[in-house]
Design a protein around this nucleic acid. Structure first.
Lengths: 140, 140
DNA sequence: CTGGATCCCTATTGATACTG
DNA sequence: CAGTATCAATAGGGATCCAG
């Protein structure tokens, strides 16, 4: 086993587990769509109403991708008017578990992130302003 | 508390924990950059070499955002040539934990996803081909 | 009601060149 | 080596119309 360059374990992280992950839930819509199905089957129009800001195009595209990846299944009811239900497959459900950890992290640490942002922005403000003046921002 | 429509717990999932999360690690580069720093401090050029496909522009932008969110800190060494090291803050490190769960999920389930994709694509192939012929694909 | 197809615009991103 | 500025290409995403 050639072990000459032991300093850097991986010279390229393009093919790591995270890349696989990102290949699956690349878009934010995918995550939100999965979240929408957490409680059970969801209909097309329901997605549209619950996921604020999503367009039909993006919704269809997202659902198709998730279906292709085996994360959800489509139930088509041949009624009039037609009804289509989307539900998570066992594979899709299994993704919910790590996803919930991420969500918990976000909820728990978001205040810290906001603080950091605030501090960073204030600092940048000072840096920019220090060139011509000292400070004049009174908005806390 | 108006509890008239109890059927749908949340009519809009645009402001949920996942949205907060996506606000922080929206881009795939952010995840890969964090991963790159898992083992310790990383220098600018090192990111460029290890994260295949990233451009200087995207790298800078990503690092800036992560710094702003308090996930990493910049160490500037005033030497010649200048050296800048990036390392995860405790906050950034705390994100590694749920992130590893996601990575594990991806690694564990990727084969299933590939199977699903394969099956889906084959199915689509048949659907498209069945219009003019039955089947002629001998490539397994 | 579901969702495919089209047009179109804007934001994201990559390549290059330049500075400290 | 680290980072910025500019420009051009691309595709992500929205609005609309149409069909099953």
């Amino acid at each position: 086993m050639g072990k000459r360059k032991a300093a850097v374990p991986d010279i390229s992280i393009a093919k790591c587990g995270y890349s696989l992950l990102l290949e699956i839930i690349a878009s934010k819509w995918a995550v939100l769509a999965i979240y929408a199905m957490e409680g059970g089957a969801v209909r097309y129009g329901e997605f549209l109403r619950r996921i604020e800001g999503i367009s039909k195009k993006m919704l269809t595209q997202t659902l198709r991708q998730l279906e292709r990846d085996g994360l959800l299944e489509r139930d088509v009811h041949d009624t009039i008017p037609p009804g289509v239900e989307y539900r998570l497959t066992p594979l899709g459900r299994s993704l919910l578990i790590p996803l919930r950890h991420m969500k918990s992290w976000a909820v728990d640490h978001y205040p810290l992130v906001r603080e950091a942002r605030d501090a960073y922005d204030k600092r940048s403000d000072q840096d920019a302003g220090s060139e011509r003046e000292e400070q004049h921002s009174s908005r806390g």
